[in-house]
C-alpha cells in the first residue's frame, strides 16, 4: 500500500497524496496506455493542442527506448520543452507505471516544481501490451488507447487495460474500411467488457479529432478541482 493516511511534512509527498508539500492541491494526473502504434503519442499531442490555451499542462513520457516520444512531442512543439519530461524505463515500461512508480512520481513532482502551477499532467506509457495499467499511486485516471488496425477482436479479448481503464479510446476509425474492422462489433464487445465505463471512437485525421477525449478530460478536471 503506497498511500498513507497521515500527512507528510517533509519535502516529498508520498505517492497519491492529493496535496503538495506546501498544502496546495496538486495537478490532476491522467495516464495514457495501450499497445505499440495505437496512437498514444498522437493523442497526447492532440490533447495538448486542444487544452493548452485553457489550462496549464505538462507531459511525462515512458519510452521503451528513451526520449523518442518526448522528442516527437518536442518536434511537434505541442508544449514548451520545460513541460515535457522523459522517464527511462529499463526496457520495462509497464514496471515504471505500475510496479515501481518512483521515477514517474519524481518526474511529475519536478514538473510541478519547475513548470508549475499545473492543472494537468499527462503520463504516457511506452507501447507495451494489453495488460499494462497504471498504478493508482501514480495517476488519478487512465485512458487506454487501442486502434482498429490492431484487430477488431481486441475489445472482445479484454485484458486489464480494455476492461478497467476509465476511458477506452478506439483510435484510427478512418482506417476501419481498409483493414476490415467492424466498428459496431468493437463497440458492442467494449460495452460487454466495460459495462458503464465510457468508450470514445476517434480519428485524429477526420471529423472531430480529439474532441471526445478532450471533453472527457475537462470533465475529470472539473471534478478534481471541485
Amino acid at each position: 500500500m503506497m498511500h498513507l493516511d497521515h500527512t507528510h511534512d517533509g519535502p516529498t509527498a508520498v505517492s497519491a497524496d492529493a496535496q503538495r508539500p506546501d498544502g496546495t492541491r496538486r495537478a490532476l494526473r491522467i495516464g495514457l496506455g495501450g499497445p505499440v502504434g495505437s496512437g498514444k503519442t498522437a493523442t497526447v499531442a492532440a490533447l495538448c493542442r486542444a487544452l493548452r490555451d485553457q489550462i496549464s499542462l505538462a507531459v511525462v513520457t515512458n519510452d521503451i527506448y528513451t526520449r523518442e516520444d518526448a522528442e516527437f512531442l518536442l518536434r511537434e512543439a505541442v508544449l514548451p520543452p520545460e513541460r515535457i519530461t522523459a522517464v527511462e524505463t529499463g526496457a520495462c515500461p509497464h514496471t515504471a507505471i505500475r510496479d515501481d512508480i518512483s521515477a514517474n512520481l519524481e518526474a511529475v513532482e519536478d514538473l510541478e516544481d519547475e513548470a508549475g502551477p499545473l492543472d494537468l499532467i499527462l503520463v504516457e506509457s511506452g507501447g507495451d501490451n494489453l495488460t499494462a495499467t497504471f498504478s493508482k499511486g501514480l495517476v488519478d485516471a487512465q485512458i487506454f488507447v487501442i486502434d482498429v488496425a490492431g484487430g477488431d477482436d481486441i475489445p472482445r479479448k479484454g485484458g486489464p487495460g480494455v476492461t478497467t481503464a476509465d476511458l477506452l479510446v478506439v483510435n484510427k476509425t478512418d482506417l476501419a474500411p481498409y483493414v476490415g474492422s467492424d466498428l459496431a462489433r468493437m463497440a458492442a464487445d467494449a460495452k460487454a467488457q466495460r459495462a458503464e465505463l465510457p468508450v470514445v471512437f476517434q480519428s485524429l485525421r477526420t471529423g472531430d479529432g480529439v474532441t471526445g477525449v478532450a471533453d472527457w478530460v475537462r470533465a475529470r478536471l472539473a471534478a478534481w478541482a471541485a
Binding site: M2, L4, H6, H8, D9, G10, P11, T12, V14, S15, S102, A103, L105, E106
Partner: peptide, 25 residues
C-alpha cells in the same frame, strides 16, 4: 542521487523515520 531520492520515497512510506525525514529535507 536519483536512485537515492527514489529509495527515500519508498523507505519513508515503508518505515517512517525522523532520520529519513531529516535527510530528505
Amino acid at each position: 542521487r536519483r536512485l537515492g531520492r527514489q529509495l527515500m520515497r519508498a523507505a519513508r512510506a515503508t518505515w517512517p523515520s525522523g532520520e529519513l525525514d531529516a535527510l530528505a529535507g
